[in-house]
């Protein structure tokens, strides 16, 4: 069968060693090899953002990223945002502001929103709109998503 290689990386704060086919994408590795089904497939072409994960602090479309490229890097998926203390402020803001409908886009949307609000503590609504351009949602029309991002900025500022 196809060539496999062993890679080591940090996944949601824990070290992982896994063998993957070299042409496999990170999304497939997460969902099918590691059983982390929070990250979603919705296009496989980088257009929808449902597969967004954080790699070394920046967000990427995991459907485009070769799994082998995870070697030595630090990944955070939607499953890794929550702490034992509960939801992270971005997740909580999304729930509280009614931003979740069918929820299928949400793992990617929330990871991206979390990245944006970490990256720029002064993030404005307009900047959030731009920052979420790569995350398609068919249910919400983004209005409540943007409300939630504004609330997350505020919550992070207050250190909650």
């Amino acid at each position: 069968m196809s060539l496999e290689t062993e890679i080591n990386f940090t996944l949601n704060g824990r070290p992982v060693t896994v063998r993957v086919p070299v042409a496999m994408k990170t999304l497939t590795m997460l969902r099918e090899v590691l059983g982390l089904t929070g990250t979603k497939y919705a296009c496989g072409e980088g257009e929808c953002g449902a597969c967004t994960v954080k790699v070394d602090g920046r967000t990427l479309n995991s459907c485009l990223m070769h799994a082998v490229d995870c070697d030595g890097r630090e990944l955070v998926t939607i499953e890794g945002l929550k702490s034992p203390a509960g939801m992270n402020p971005t997740q909580k803001a999304f729930v509280d502001h009614g931003a979740v409908q069918c929820g299928f886009c949400m793992p990617g949307m929330i990871i991206q929103a979390d990245y944006l609000t970490d990256d720029d503590p002064q993030l404005t609504r307009e900047q959030a709109q731009r920052g979420l351009e790569g995350n398609l949602c068919r249910c919400t029309g983004y209005t409540k998503v943007l409300d939630a991002v504004e609330a997350a900025v505020e919550a992070k500022r207050c250190g909650r």
Binding site: I78, E79, M87, K92, V95, V100, I110
Partner: peptide
């Protein structure tokens, strides 16, 4: 709030 929202927000909904 939607009762199904938290599990969706943490990636747990199957």
């Amino acid at each position: 709030k939607k009762p199904d929202a938290p599990d969706k927000a943490i990636g747990k909904t199957r």
